[in-house]
Design a protein around this nucleic acid. Structure first.
Lengths: 344, 344
DNA sequence: CTGAAAGCGCTTACAG
DNA sequence: CTGAAAGCGCTTACAG
């Protein structure tokens, strides 16, 4: 369980001495040969891990610049792009290299983090950053067991206890969005959220609820809809909300892409934003700036989140103690053109 | 000069025999020690390269999945994003890993491809893809000398003779854009281009000129302006064009970002697109789809360009003969809402 | 600056 | 399944 900061190199012979077997036997275990008794193998493996044994190849790799792997769910959004830039930015400063993959492109079965963990050990990777992905707890444990630092950015499901994660103040952001709409005079405000189970989505929802409740504004469950984080869902969501007897006068969208979908559908229906409908997005990507009207949005410091994730991975790799298993960077409401007082 | 496809491993002792020096001396050369006579060193180095000697560490790296490096100028655009996705896509299929860097974030001095080339040899990289960057000929030669396959995507300056490049049919795309505007009845069509020296920009410009000339439509140099590939430049460009005594009725923008800038400035001035001004972009990124009005644009197959670049690098790495040093994938004009017949 | 000799770390081939 | 012995590839220390 201790992080071995191997100074002097541990030799195979040393492991042999430690475990009371011969050097050839240790060699077989290291090379994954079959002809070793299970107990012997277990004993030797334990000693290898304990002593932090590195094969000559690993030592060689360790000598070069360190490599951090980054696993995106997909790099298809402005969100990913900005996080990636933050990571590359800090990577250049810290002199580490970035190995990129997107599980969207992974062969069938998606994330096989366990196999990946072993490969990362073999190749001496400094750590792993996982961005906005769902993952199984067991898979993250595969890294823990091998002492590979992992940091997740905005995980879709809550990571197990002490896996380090970086995110934004989603709750405060949700609250700020709703308060802005309340201040403008809106009373029927819908939340058009992302995936119901996504942690960041829940935090945004609860921030929104908290703002409404603290002003004594009621909101029925019919005003809260969950779907996914894509524009098509904004199109559907607006359509659904408009079937209500008393439709909302404002919508808080779970992210900018959803908001852009709402905007598109509103335009198609001749609903003017912000005159007929106010709209707030979340993320503050260039999508918000470039849309027409420009979107009022809760900006996440995505670039800094990327930087923070890498900084945190490298700290762990150096064996530094972290202050916290969770880092949240501040969100900020940016008011643009898509919000105004309600009509009438 | 021959690509050594080292089957059996060459040992240090073999090199010693070949050159008539002792094994320890070869060892010193390999490890870059100082205490070797220049001539001896030269002779040994030549033999090492000739025989394709790999240190045990290198052999180990070669055993793992191969790694391709990708150097972006910046990953700050939808263009980069889509190319990157194409690369990752094919990387997953081919089982290679992708090491990413952006020279934008590089320490002062930018691209030092020469040093990078040596590092890539040491670490056994399969090849390099350079995306939309300016580079010095000498730097690319550093890779040639070390037999590292390089493919450039849409280089900002023409690469030296036989460096492999992947691009799109920019000339045909420029011609299609101009023809579309001509077909709509426009006669005063401006070209608001990117950097004057960029090859892709020149091809687009000449496609545009060719369309106009083949219809006998004149165009003065005042209708062709060059700047850069960013939105701010579209803002400036439109302002400049509007100072003309007889402003154009249509603008062909060098890329979508410029077009979005034009759109923004047009909106600010109360100029309606397409009623008062037609506008065609280039790239066909999501920027074109999402803007209001949606942009008519010449789409580049960016995803496929990424795939093709990686496929080509891997072919070279396997020592296959390429059909051509230049691959151009087809562009396609996508007509959306930003083009219409001229007013009056 | 060079290389014979010794040595290191790991692996292989094989007797038990 | 294990390990003594031999061997491989490379490096180190040092005499010339």
């Amino acid at each position: 369980m201790t992080l071995t900061t191997t100074g002097g190199k541990t030799t195979l012979a040393a492991i042999a001495r430690l475990t009371g077997v011969s050097a050839p036997t240790v060699s077989k275990v290291v090379n994954g040969r079959e002809d070793v008794a299970p107990q012997t193998r277990a004993k030797v493996l334990a000693a290898l891990e304990d002593a932090g044994y590195q094969s000559p190849g690993q030592r060689r790799t360790a000598a070069g610049p360190s490599v951090v792997e980054v696993a995106f769910d997909s790099v298809n959004s402005n969100y990913s792009l900005t996080v990636l830039n933050g990571i590359l930015d800090y990577a250049a400063e810290a002199g580490v290299e970035v190995m990129l993959s997107a599980t969207q492109h992974a062969p069938a079965g998606g994330h096989d983090l366990s196999r990946r963990a072993q490969r990362m050990v073999d190749e001496g990777r400094a750590g792993l950053i996982v961005v906005t992905s769902a993952f199984a707890e067991a898979q993250l444990m595969a890294f823990r067991r091998r002492q590979i630092p992992v940091v997740v950015i905005d995980p879709l499901n809550p990571p197990p206890g002490d896996v380090v994660s970086v995110g934004a103040t989603n709750w405060a952001g949700g609250r700020a969005a709703a308060e802005h709409l309340l201040d403008l005079g809106h009373r029927r405000i819908a939340y058009l959220g992302g995936p119901k189970s996504a942690e960041c989505n829940q935090a945004r929802l609860h921030g929104y609820m908290s703002a409404l409740m603290s002003r004594g504004i009621g909101f029925g469950p019919e005003l809260v809809i969950h779907g996914n984080f894509r524009a098509e869902y904004g199109v559907e969501g607006l359509s659904a909300l408009l079937t209500m007897p008393e439709p909302p006068t404002a919508i808080f969208a779970g992210n900018d892409a959803i908001a852009v979908g709402v905007l598109r559908e509103a335009r198609r229906r001749g609903i003017r934003v912000p005159e007929d409908l106010s709209l707030v997005g979340f993320d503050g990507t260039t999508l918000a700036e470039d849309s027409v009207p420009a979107l009022t949005s809760v900006a996440q410091p995505l670039h800094d989140m990327g930087r923070a994730a890498l900084r945190t991975v490298l700290r762990q790799a150096r064996g530094e103690q972290l202050d916290s298993h969770r880092v949240e960077l501040a969100t900020q409401l940016v008011i643009r053109e898509s919000t105004a007082p309600p009509a009438r």
